Simulated assay, not measured.
Amino acid sequence: MKLGLQLGYWQRNADDATASVLAAERLGYDSVWTAEAYGSDAFTPLAWYGARTSRIKLGTSVAQLSARPPVTTAMTAMTLDALTGGRLILGVGASGPQVVEGWYGQPFARPLARTREYVEIMRKVWRREEPVTAGGPHYPLPLPGGLGKPLKLITHPLRPDIPVYLGAEGPRNVALAAEVAQGWLPLFAFPDKIEEMYGDALAGAPAGFEIAAMVTVVISDDVRAALNGVKLMLALYIGGMGARHRNFHADIIGRMGYAEAAEHIQSLYLAGRKDEAFQAIPDELADGISLVGPPGRIRERLELWRKSPVTSLLVMGPRDEPTLRQVRDLVLG
């Protein structure tokens, strides 16, 4: 199993994680990842960290499809990949209707079809076999009825096959990742339920397909306090990161076996009763998707991840070098 450092969003001037990234590279972490929602973008922090490192892979988790046309993402990825010596892993995802429609002013219709089209166009750009054309309907190239003509990328990519991972939560999205991408980025994963939930969706995955799961890690003798930190995050995602009738995060918690709890948590959160929403999150749910507690307890729970199809753990939480070393020794030791 490989180990990655998930930094999440860059949020403020003081949030420069260069020291953490350099420590992770020294300690043998395979990758470092940044994210975007409606604040910082995912690529600029990676360029910053990539300029200061030489070996660690650089991943987006995830770059939002609606933020950029597919050729723009392809150009950005090609440039960053070349400048960092072929270290980019391009994670992309459809996001959700609240962000896509509210922030980007784009329709959210048919996310699977849009994702498939998006990835196909990016691969055409990188291969440079011919001027890029696409029949649409979501990203037609050239624009029908206009003055544009098919164009070919001016710059030769360092790699014409930059790895693409999909951020996906529903079984159909995961099946699409197994079909068109080199990896899948699950946000919430119950290691002992992955086969049950996604076995059919992953059945067509090619050899070497990567599953890079994000997992909150808190090394502490106070298990209750550690679980509470995970529950705070879950309350936000289940309750507030989506519309009442279309929240993909709540849906996945439901598929894990907590549908009634997810509905109750969301109702409380949207009613402004956030403390009650927090209290309503089952301990076993928070514990199942995280690695918290003293080292012995984490080491024991890591066995569930090792038995799962997950190939990389992208740890969220640790930033200081002693803790990063401790996590490394637990996961890779």
Rank of each mutant, 00 (worst) to 15 (best):
R87G: 01
G254V: 08
G148H: 12
V174N: 07
M122G: 06
V218C: 12
L46K: 03
I265C: 03
A225N: 08
V327P: 00
D320S: 14
I162K: 01
G183C: 00
F188T: 04
R297E: 15
R246K: 09
I219F: 09
G288I: 10
A82T: 07
L7R: 08
A189S: 15
A259W: 07
T44A: 12
L143M: 14
P150E: 08
A205D: 10
T53D: 00
L314S: 07
Q266M: 14
G96D: 03
E300I: 12
A262R: 04
P131L: 10
R123D: 00
R110H: 12
F190T: 10
G257M: 12
G272N: 14
L232I: 11
W33Q: 00
V125W: 04
V132R: 06
E196K: 12
A212L: 08
I289C: 11
L141E: 03
G239N: 01
A277P: 02
V292Y: 02
G39Y: 15
D222Y: 09
R127D: 01
L324D: 01
V327S: 06
P111Y: 02
Y9Q: 15
L80W: 04
G333C: 11
E169F: 04
A17K: 11
I56L: 02
L187H: 07
A177G: 02
L285W: 09
R273F: 03
D200N: 14
A37P: 00
G28L: 09
V125Q: 01
K231F: 07
D30Y: 07
G183R: 00
K193W: 10
Y9W: 13
G288S: 14
M75Q: 08
A226H: 07
W33P: 00
P282V: 08
A212N: 09
E117A: 06
D15N: 07
Y104I: 01
T133W: 11
K231W: 09
R123C: 06
L80D: 05
D41N: 14
L141F: 06
L3S: 07
P163S: 05
R127L: 05
R26D: 14
L151R: 13
V327H: 05
G86H: 04
E196D: 13
L46Y: 01
P206Y: 05
D251V: 10
R159V: 00
R26A: 14
E321N: 11
D329E: 15
L3P: 07
L268Y: 00
P309I: 13
L166V: 04
L65V: 12
P171D: 10
A189L: 15
A175W: 07
E195C: 13
G28T: 04
Y118V: 02
A37Q: 14
R110Q: 11
L227T: 11
F108T: 09
A175P: 05
R306C: 11
Q6H: 13
E276L: 07
A113L: 14
I154N: 08
R110A: 13
